[in-house]
């Protein structure tokens, strides 16, 4: 054994810091996408580790669907303020007002439209690199995506034409108008995220912990009742102890039944769960076997 202990979390943390520093050093105008969800909260801590005692050499950016859980938005604002970092929020409502997004049904998920506002924001600020908290263990299409993922002028991902990525030597070069999405926590799993939240004592929105909530059961999913989702005739509202494993659009993010009220209890549950994170909680990924891949090709994160 070596005289030093270097755990898997240490290895992942160091890798992520290295990636963020490459972005800061080589990209002209990067941004860090920050939603207030658990993965992006981990990203913020990693940025602190990479750049303190200096300020972050990039702003935080959130593309707000206006379909978010209020607890998550509150955490987003509080964390950005506590860190003293610049937070840019752009809303899907702006794109709707401009007419670049046309909403036909208010109760439907807005995730498919997020890419429109994201691309408009990229153009507004001239970002050449956007860092995001996506992980390869989330979904099959992500498992094949590079850490530095190149996008053309239309924000499109071409899975068959990816740059080879060797060692930790990242090619960050883009032509004008093109940009890259960078995923510093590509190699983290859901379990790693929870272990790191525990180790670093990170503050996350309360809805990740078990709480009583009004839900309805629809098509095998447990759906939270909100101003956007109301019971249809014949559907019964139940109060159930649930927690969220992911926190996206309120209309398509399903909680799981749980009594885990601490990070340790969530870790214990995660260790024994038999369903993937997105499989359990994201109805938008269940629509077809390739739904995430199609959204990514259109410029979704």
């Amino acid at each position: 054994m070596s005289k030093h202990t270097f755990t898997h979390l240490d290895a992942l943390e160091s890798e992520s810091m290295h990636i963020m520093r490459e972005v800061a050093a080589e990209c002209k105008n990067p941004a860090l996408l920050f939603s207030g969800g658990k993965d992006s909260i981990v990203m913020l801590r990693l940025a602190e580790k990479a750049f303190r005692p200096a300020k972050f050499p990039f702003p935080l950016v959130h593309i707000d669907t206006e379909h978010n859980f209020p607890e998550v938005i509150a955490t987003r604002d509080k964390l950005a303020a506590d860190l003293g970092e610049r937070l840019i929020v752009r809303s899907l409502e702006d794109s709707i007002a401009r007419g670049t997004i046309v909403i036909k049904d208010e109760s439907k998920p807005r995730n498919p439209f997020q890419s429109v506002t994201l691309l408009e924001t990229i153009a507004e600020f001239g970002f050449d690199a956007c860092m995001g908290g996506a992980r390869r263990d989330e979904e099959k299409a992500r498992a094949k995506e590079r850490i530095f993922s190149f996008r053309d002028e239309f924000g499109q991902w071409d899975p068959k034409n990816q740059r080879p990525e060797l060692w930790d030597t990242y090619n960050t070069r883009v032509n004008n108008g093109e940009n890259i999405r960078v995923f510093p926590i590509s190699n983290w799993t859901e379990m790693d995220i929870w272990e790191y939240i525990g180790r670093e004592k990170l503050h996350i929105p309360e809805i990740y912990f078990a709480h009583e909530r009004e839900v309805i059961r629809r098509g095998g999913n447990v759906i939270p009742v909100s101003h956007l989702v109301q019971p249809k005739p014949g559907e019964k509202v139940e109060v159930v102890s649930v927690r969220f494993r992911t926190v996206g659009d309120m209309t398509c993010t399903a909680p799981v039944e749980s009594t885990a009220r601490t990070v340790d209890e969530i870790i214990a549950e995660t260790a024994t769960t038999r369903i993937t994170e997105r499989g359990a909680t994201r109805m938008d990924d269940q629509t077809s076997e390739a739904s995430m891949e199609l959204r990514k090709k259109e410029g979704y994160f």
Partner: peptide, 29 residues
Amino acid sequence: TDGLQAEREQGITIDVAYRYFATPKRKFI
């Protein structure tokens, strides 16, 4: 391990895919 639509349609694998698993002793990529 075959993730992309083209691969599923053609029954081939076109790129490097990363998979993750863990045992109590180690994490694996």
